[in-house]
């Protein structure tokens, strides 16, 4: 990808942003705090930030896609967490549904900031 982050955001990101604005109510701060902590520290499963970069969490992993560049939607993050993607493991045995949703919601909003 080109080196200038600000120029990389495409039309898809704009579309996704619009969808999020329609579907995502503001999350309670406590949920965001939990999501950020889990992103950085993980649990029995590895922390998201070991593999992924996310500016909002100050995570700098380079194994998986840079989430600020990928700009996934909440649903894309949720499905990736629930089912895994390639070598990314599924987190559905560690996290209950509401936590999967909270984490996906946090990431999807964070990449739009």
């Amino acid at each position: 990808m080109p080196p200038v982050r600000g120029s990389r955001r495409g039309a898809a990101g704009v579309v996704a942003s619009g969808v999020l604005a329609l579907t995502c109510a503001a999350a309670p701060a406590a949920e965001d705090d939990w999501a950020r902590t889990y992103f950085l520290e993980g649990g029995a499963m590895p922390a998201c930030g070991i593999c992924h970069s996310l500016d909002a969490a100050e995570a700098t992993g380079t194994v998986g896609p840079d989430l600020d560049l990928l700009e996934p939607t909440e649903q894309q993050v949720y499905l990736a967490l629930r089912d895994g993607v390639g070598v990314m493991p599924a987190f559905s045995e560690e996290l209950p549904e509401d936590r999967l949703r909270a984490l996906a919601d946090y990431v999807a909003r964070a990449v739009q900031e």
Binding site: R8, G10, V15, T73
Partner: peptide, 12 residues
Amino acid sequence: HFLVGAAGAAGA
């Protein structure tokens, strides 16, 4: 399908 990509590169 939401596409991701480079500057002005993707649209749905």
